[in-house]
Design a protein around this nucleic acid. Structure first.
Lengths: 242, 242
DNA sequence: CAGTTCATATAGCGTTGCTATAGGTGATAG
DNA sequence: CTATCACCTATAGCAACGCTATATGAACTG
């Protein structure tokens, strides 16, 4: 019953925890099960990981590396918003392939205590959304878009995990995914042909904003602020670098 | 320490469980705490509710009645899709007002075992969406729309609960809500809700410039200038264009 | 009044997460 | 070669957990 004998106890504990978690079928996993499978006693676990949650965090960290690897594999498509869609699908697949691990990662919600992994996943998605924003394809700030999309992504994945496997309807995921991506994208991105996507730059964006600001009468800045703001915009717009 | 003495033990148990759940601050609630507060001993709990989960289910059932009452109170507006938006907001508020209860109701996900309450909530939303469908305002079947909207609604609520109270940004909820409702509605319904029109080009340009500036390392502005500049940009980016 | 059923209490089982303490191990210093 | 010391692991056990076998009282029912 014990795991391969000659690896360090720390690694044996990690593998035992991961294996039991993957096969627990939803019921809880006890430290005694883990230590027995790892072939060590209780204090060893607490020496290396502090407490049970520390061990699970470590398992989650390994799982997250795998998750990130999946998220980055097919990233470099030309279309950032298409990549967001792939990130969504990869997220759902990760959750359905390893539901127990996913639940430890994203399902263990407690009031006022955010799992660290949520922030990591948000950052990952925000990074990709930034590319879309640079290309002028986003009509909301990348951070807010990332939080919103990830929240829906997690909600859908949790719902699918809760369903019995044969009844799982991935159309739910596809529909919600498209709705969220559509909602954060600009008309230009929706019309699907951003021929000047690669050309977007600080300068182009600054010129566009300059023109847009002067055309509208935004009241978000005071007149003195606006004057300085436009001066800086001009400095950026007329710079030849980048 | 014991609850009002003359009510039946079953009701005292329910109230004790609800009260402890509401004030647990995220940590677990034990049967011993509950029975002590209710002024009864352990077997009484198991006689009436079978097990701990049975008791919690009963608390949830009461909580769900309250939830449904809230969902139905302002229902009869003329616009079904507006009512869906109110159901969404009510759902989020319910979760934020009673996070512990909400987590027992919607956060206790286990693989292949759907909480009964999810089906109830879906039915409630589907009922309302049916009205929209009858009015020709839905471009997907009500059941699928309800599942999709509820999944996003739960995801957003869980994310908000996980955040520390002062940092909770309800804009996340509003944005996701509008995205989901927009996605399931027909052109006709959209034209009746002109407030969701696209954002002005100022906002889009500001977002693009913000992202571009942070991606490149432009040296056209000093760091202190850049900081203020970005702050203004953020103000413009997040301004609502109602 | 006897019989039955419901409701509660006493006491305790097995398991949980965790730890106080001590023993063994290997590397380094004298 | 020995002494030391930091690191790692084991023995044994605690308090708290969910839950229950059993017994006792109360309240109906014939």
């Amino acid at each position: 019953m014990s795991l391969d004998g000659q690896l360090p106890p720390k690694i044996r504990l990690l593998r035992a925890a991961a294996e039991l978690l993957a096969n627990s079928g939803g019921s809880a996993v006890s430290t005694r099960q883990i230590t027995q499978l790892a072939g060590v006693t209780a204090p060893t676990l607490y020496h290396h990981f502090g407490d049970k949650e520390g061990l699970f965090d470590a398992v989650v960290a390994a799982g997250f590396d795998e998750y990130v690897a999946g998220e980055r594999d097919f990233a470099p498509s030309g279309q950032p918003l298409e990549d967001i869609g792939r990130m969504w699908d990869n997220h759902v697949q990760f959750g359905l392939n390893q539901p127990e691990l996913y639940l430890v990662m994203f399902g263990n919600i407690r009031p006022e205590s955010r799992p660290a992994i949520v922030a990591d996943a948000e950052a990952l998605m925000e990074e990709m959304l930034n590319k879309a924003a640079v290309a002028g394809q986003l009509n909301v700030p990348p951070r807010e878009a990332a939080r919103s999309i990830l929240a829906a992504n997690v909600g859908v994945t949790l719902m699918l995990i809760a369903e019995k496997a044969p009844e799982r309807n991935l159309e739910l995921s596809a529909m919600t995914r498209d709705a969220m991506i559509f909602a954060v994208s600009t008309e230009q991105a929706r019309s699907e042909r951003p021929e000047d996507a690669g050309k977007s730059s600080v300068v182009v964006a600054a010129i566009a904003l300059n023109a847009a600001l002067q055309a509208s009468h935004s009241d978000q800045l005071s007149s003195s602020e606006l004057k300085l703001f436009l001066e800086w915009l001009h400095r950026i717009s007329t710079s030849s670098t980048s």
